[in-house]
């Protein structure tokens, strides 16, 4: 895609994403009021990841970027996952 014609995201798309983000915020607050044991934190993280995904994909235009950008993003997230994973390998099995 040539840069002059790079995608212009319509207002409506942003509004829909914003409403979705508000709904997900309501859901995460509601779910936190109930006791699910260890699941509480995983549900909270799941919803937060979903919200983050919407922000990155649409608000930050990642959906419309080239494969290079997506590859870079996944590399950064993989590095973060490795950091977290290796830390817990150390912490949990000390």
């Amino acid at each position: 895609m040539s840069e002059e014609h790079a995608h212009i995201v319509p207002y409506k798309t942003f509004l829909i994403i914003w409403v979705a983000l508000l709904i997900l915020t309501g859901v995460t607050v509601a779910v936190a009021q109930y006791h699910f044991g260890a699941w509480n934190i995983w549900i909270a993280l799941g919803i937060a990841t979903l919200k983050a995904g919407l922000v990155v994909a649409v608000f930050m235009h990642m959906k419309y970027e080239t494969r290079l950008f997506k590859l870079a993003l996944f590399s950064a997230l993989a590095i973060l996952a490795i950091f977290i994973g290796l830390t817990f390998v150390d912490v949990l099995y000390r």
Binding site: A32, Q33, H35, N40, A44, L45, A48, A52, V55, V56
Partner: peptide
């Protein structure tokens, strides 16, 4: 905004 999306549940919604 993204960072806050994670801060909010981890710090404010850790109730159970």
């Amino acid at each position: 905004d993204l960072i806050w999306i994670f801060i909010f549940p981890l710090y404010y919604l850790i109730l159970h």
